[in-house]
Design a protein around this nucleic acid. Structure first.
Lengths: 259, 259
DNA sequence: CCATCTTTGTGCACGCGTTCACAAAGACAT
DNA sequence: ATGTCTTTGTGAACGCGTGCACAAAGATGG
């Protein structure tokens, strides 16, 4: 999962736990599927199964939104779709800009799921002058110089960063300065933002590494390898300043995704 | 963040907390950057700042791996890079297959960060016969029919699913049956897998919806809107079976990403 | 060899999130 | 109207994760 930045002390206002907010889109997706099949009501058990969670957890989640269920029957699908949509702020239009139209940025721009949920790609922005004017997913790419103008003219509050790692912080700063207060970051960097700005990150490399950890653990349990008796590979060796070079193909990946 | 599936009772064997494992790649990235700059040692304070976490948290995380620091000095960068790499299983080669070579799948295939960390794209697989043989990122796409063969021949244990939602579960089942035990899912569906198989998901739509929630909350706090006095939009109305149709552009997105 | 200073490693407390288990609420049949 | 049956909503207990704060460990200088 893309993880948010340092958790704030939980959502203050109406006090909906962060963990619950993260699951609401899951419920919404399952409910939408039911709605399309014209299913009128659904029990917490069924819906929980569809969303892949515990039914008690689902009921508690819904309890934060209010008492929208009917005991002995379940939840009214259409009503719940509306309530969750409203709670998530999907009943309004969210203009979004995507910065960095490389492989990934282009794939995101072509993603059809934006429009279906209140998100609208207001502009595509790239630093390469050669890209300017070139249409991607039917939208002409604009140059970075116009970033501030675009943000203000369209009232954009959500920005997607799909640039190389080296450019991400700078782009982020400009987005924030222009008024963006929510950022979805695909670049493999830790972004620093002022209070009041939310950052969520999606990082392919991290996800793979987490999988590798568990994969290794599975393999190790079988063979008894990797156990407490693995060879200590040489202590710090605080002597010569060896191992200095190492070109490192990482650190500033040219175009696409998390490193 | 892409979230894992139902947490197991924490990592049993050596007892490294799941939350710690998720941060190790972050530390590793920061350490690699330091290593490339030939920085010999780093304090928990500095490294924590670079990784965007609390220093106490970082020290506790490292304490699960062992006592690799020197009091009064800090941590030996090279040594720590090695230890974390080993712990994450990055000292070995992980062949990976990508299934579903649409916009996103192609972008992932072109991602240069795979090779740099022990991950190697062993094959690209797509259901479209027209794609077969066509090279993407220098690798010829193979047809789904050969999936099992490819998995077994290459000893693949990690699979990436970038297919439309409708095909994801079926692809997943085949991957698992063929021996894959870790899956990174980009399709907007809840995958059901047997015990012992790890699934992590990356879902653009969910991330955006979470941002929208916070965004709405910020706006609501300013104007006092969305407060406890919002208009109740009509109770369940459990009468006519209205609201039946609604084509729904969702549910089976053609090619790219989470819906 | 001793004093001082820096930085790690961790005991402890607190808060969030999950899960169980059950009482209350409503539907439905008689 | 009453009883039964289903399913919600939630009180309470537990466990994980976080962060504080400090003692122990080692470096460094005299």
């Amino acid at each position: 999962m893309a993880t948010g930045r340092t958790h704030r002390p939980a959502t203050r206002s109406r006090g909906i736990p962060e963990a619950t907010v993260a699951r609401l889109p899951l419920y919404l997706r399952a409910l939408t599927a039911l709605s399309e099949r014209s299913v009128p009501t659904v029990s917490s058990e069924e819906l929980a199964a569809a969303a892949g969670v515990n039914s008690a957890k689902l009921r508690k989640d819904f309890s934060y939104l209010g008492s929208y269920g009917t005991r002995g029957v379940g939840y009214d699908v259409e009503y719940l779709v509306y309530q969750i949509s409203r709670e998530l702020g999907l009943t309004q239009d969210w203009p979004v800009v995507i910065v960095g139209i490389g492989n990934l940025g282009a794939a995101l721009a072509n993603y059809g799921g934006f429009a279906s949920r209140g998100f609208r790609v207001a502009a595509l922005i790239d630093a390469d002058p050669a890209m300017a004017g070139k249409p991607v997913a039917g939208i002409p790419v604009q140059h970075t110089d116009e970033l501030e103008q675009i943000i203000r003219d369209n009232g954009v509050s959500i920005g997607v960063i799909a640039t190389p790692a080296g450019a991400a912080q700078q782009v982020c700063d400009r987005l924030v300065a222009a008024g963006v207060t929510s950022i979805l970051n695909f670049a493999p960097t830790v972004l620093t933002v002022p209070d009041g700005v939310d950052v969520r990150k999606v990082d392919l490399s991290i996800e793979l590494q987490i999988l590798a950890f568990h994969e290794q653990r599975k393999a190790g349990e079988e063979t008894g390898q990797t156990g407490p008796g693995s060879t200590p590979p040489a202590p710090p060796a605080r002597s010569a300043g060896v191992a200095a070079e190492r070109k490192g193909p990482d650190g500033d990946v040219p175009a696409v995704m998390p490193a």
